[in-house]
Design a protein around this nucleic acid. Structure first.
Lengths: 135, 135
DNA sequence: CTCAGTGCAAACTATTTGCAGATTT
DNA sequence: AAATCTGCAAATAGTTTGCACTGAG
C-alpha cells in the first residue's frame, strides 16, 4: 500500500505510530492539524502513541517532505500533507476556518521583489486573517 | 517630550521601564527586536527591568498600537514600532537580515482574493524567506 | 494617598530529549 | 540480532501570572 511506501521511502521504518499519524493527516476533514489535534484524534481512536512520538513523527515527516508546518498565529504549529501545488492561506478570525488559495500574480511579484533586492526566494508564508463580510 | 505623550495617551503611566523600552525600540539599529533582545540591551545599559516587565510592556504597547508583533519563524516573537505605512518582510535565511518592502499590487490582489471568498481582510502577514543570489 | 506598575519566582504552553524497553527489518 | 522506534517523564524555551512591594499622579 502506498502509505507504507511513502514512509519507507523517507528512510523510516513502517511503524504503528507512523501509519496512524499519516492516516489521520490523510483522512481528517480539517487539513491543518496541530500536534495536539492529532494526539486527541489518536486517543479517540484508541490509538494513542504519546505526544512525544507525535511531535517526533511530524518532524520526521516534515524533513521527509511528507508534510509541511505552518505557524499561522503565535500558538501551536499546524501541519498539513505537502500539497501537490503551492498555495497560501486565509484564516477566518471568527471561525478559525482555513481557506487555501493560490495566486500566480502574487507569486510572480514576490520573485521580482526578491530579485530586486539581490535575493532568491527559498520559501514564503502568506496568511490573510479575514472575517466574513456581513457584520 | 513626545515619547512620554505616546505612553500617556495609551492610558499608561509614564514609568522608567516603559520609557526605556520605548527608547530601545526607537534607537536600536535593528528594527525588529525580540523581548530577549530588548532585555539584553537594557542590561547592557544598566537599565534592567526584568523579563516579565519587558513582556508586559511590549504587550501593552501592542494593545495601544505603539508597536506590532511578528512571528516570523517558530522561535521568539519580534516587535517593531508601528510603521507609518504598512509593509511586508523579507528575511534572509543566511544572515537573519530583515528587509522591509511594500507592494501595492500584492495588497490589492489580496483584497480581491478575500472578497472573492466572502471575506474582508483584518490583517495579513507576508514573509519571504530568501537567500543571496550568489552561491 | 491610591492605584497602577514592578520584580521575582513560580506557573504555563508548546515542544524536545534522555533513556530503558519494545518493534521493525 | 541489530538498529530504529516508542513512551514516559524530565528538560527546555518562550511567555504569562500571582503577589507583596514600589512608584507615578
Amino acid at each position: 500500500m502506498s502509505k507504507n511506501n511513502e514512509i519507507r521511502s523517507a528512510g523510516l521504518k513502517v511503524t504503528h505510530a507512523r501509519k496512524r499519524i499519516l492516516e489521520v493527516l490523510e483522512t481528517s476533514k480539517k487539513s491543518h492539524l496541530s500536534a495536539d489535534d492529532i494526539n486527541k484524534i489518536l486517543i479517540k481512536n484508541n490509538d494513542e502513541v504519546g505526544v512525544a512520538t507525535v511531535y517526533r513523527v511530524l518532524n520526521q515527516f516534515v524533513d521527509a517532505g511528507i508534510c509541511i508546518k505552518h505557524n499561522f498565529d503565535s500558538g501551536q504549529a499546524v501541519f498539513e500533507l505537502t500539497p501537490s501545488h503551492h498555495h497560501d492561506h486565509m484564516v477566518c478570525v471568527k471561525t478559525g476556518k482555513v481557506i487555501e488559495f493560490e495566486d500566480e500574480l502574487i507569486e510572480e511579484r514576490q520573485d521580482q521583489l526578491a530579485k530586486q533586492n539581490g535575493y532568491r526566494i527559498v520559501d514564503h508564508s502568506l496568511v490573510l486573517f479575514v472575517e466574513p463580510i456581513d457584520d
